[in-house]
């Protein structure tokens, strides 16, 4: 976080009848941050974005912008940029006219509008397409027009509602790169809604995880990934192995385990990311006997589906060059991991 908070949400609630879309969401956002709101569909992330933008009003709670209460301020007076899901471009206007629309609304001088549109076209790589209608553009180009239109009037905050959900994988990666560059160059605060965890990890300075209308955790991508606050966050972001600890002795199915931080817990769960586990060779670190249930070939690596003696499932990836070809379903193996990479859930 840089400096003091630019946007502050204080216990925001949003109810639709009896359904609670958001409950008690509080977070603060520094100027120039790139915050991703991440969660499954129906988790309240889009509702929260709408509330920040002024397109929806909270049932209770307060929203501050630079210390001012803007809870009741309509969207048009907040002056934030917004990229809508599906882009919401004006189909009857050309690219240039779409970008110029908010500038004309602000009654800027004609020459200034022309210069600014040219600048935005250049910045978003739309040169040569100025006179085309949105329908004549590809998905990626439409996306750029939406970005250019939202950024044309130099908003302090840019809100993006699943902007890449309609793009194919390659284009997505490319647009993510461009969005990072825009964010770096402009220094505008970006708030970005997505349900794609990889996208959130790759783009954000911080991620806010939503589920059932509640903020589960907010933090830098590596904090959230490596130290998830709860089981939902751990399972939602990336792959995770969760093993039940014996109620006494701190082992797993009778096998003694070294726990993180020299803790001596009774019961509970121990979690670790698959990339921190390996097939044990010899007698290193924590070792757990497992049985191979299935092996999924993925090109450069394989995913091994394993089962502990207690019947709990876990998985890990192995490089295919190191993989012994005789690994077949039913093989008895040992997995190993470093205690520092495991955590309690």
């Amino acid at each position: 976080m840089t400096g003091t908070a630019q946007i502050e949400a204080c216990s925001i609630d949003r109810k639709f009848g009896t359904f609670s879309a958001l409950s008690g969401v509080s977070l603060s956002l520094g100027e120039g941050e790139f915050l991703s709101l991440l969660g499954p569909s129906g988790s309240g992330k889009s509702t929260f974005l709408s509330i920040i933008g002024g397109y929806d009003a909270p049932t209770s709670g307060k929203l501050l912008f630079e210390g001012r209460d803007i809870t009741a301020t309509p969207a048009k007076e907040r002056g934030f940029g917004m990229v809508f899901q599906g882009y919401a471009l004006f189909p009857h206007l050309t690219v240039a006219e779409n970008i110029a629309f908010p500038l004309k609304v602000q009654k800027r001088p004609r020459a200034a509008i022309r210069d600014r549109v040219a600048e935005m076209v250049e910045m978003t790589g739309l040169s040569g397409h100025e006179k085309k209608k949105p329908a004549a553009l590809s998905g990626g180009q439409q996306q750029r027009v939406a970005l250019a239109r939202a950024l044309a009037y130099e908003p302090r905050v840019l809100l993006l509602d699943e902007p890449f959900s309609a793009l194919d994988r390659n284009l997505r990666t490319q647009m993510q790169e461009e969005l990072r560059r825009l964010h770096r160059d402009l220094g505008t605060t970006f708030v970005f809604v997505t349900h794609d965890q990889e996208e959130a990890l790759a783009l954000s300075s911080r991620i806010a995880i939503f589920n059932h209308g509640q903020l589960q955790q907010i933090g830098r991508p590596e904090e959230i990934y490596e130290a998830p606050a709860n089981r939902f966050t751990a399972e939602f972001l990336g792959d995770i192995n969760i093993l039940t600890l014996d109620s006494a002795g701190g082992g797993i199915c009778g096998t003694p385990i070294v726990l993180p931080g020299n803790a001596v817990p009774t019961g509970g769960h121990l979690a670790m990311r698959p990339e921190h586990m390996r097939l044990a060779a010899g007698s290193d670190g924590n070792q757990l006997p497992v049985r191979l249930r299935d092996r999924v070939y993925l090109g450069p690596k394989s995913r091994l589906m394993l089962e502990t003696r207690g019947g709990e499932e876990l998985m890990l990836y192995v490089e295919n060059d190191a993989l012994l070809p005789q690994l077949a379903a039913g093989s008895e193996l040992h997995v190993a991991w470093d205690a520092r990479h495991s955590f309690f859930l």
């Binding site: 048009k76 934030f80 917004m82 809508f84 919401a88 471009l89 629309f101 609304v105 602000q106 009037y153």
Partner: peptide, 29 residues
């Protein structure tokens, strides 16, 4: 008509009159 274009136009500060003449009417041409 995509409702979001109207919301977008409003969010950009366009008056109801402008939204009608420059967005709604041409989009229903």
């Amino acid at each position: 008509l995509d409702e979001r274009t109207l919301i977008a136009a409003e969010g950009m500060g366009a008056s109801r009159l402008r939204i009608f003449w420059q967005v709604f009417l041409p989009m229903t041409a």
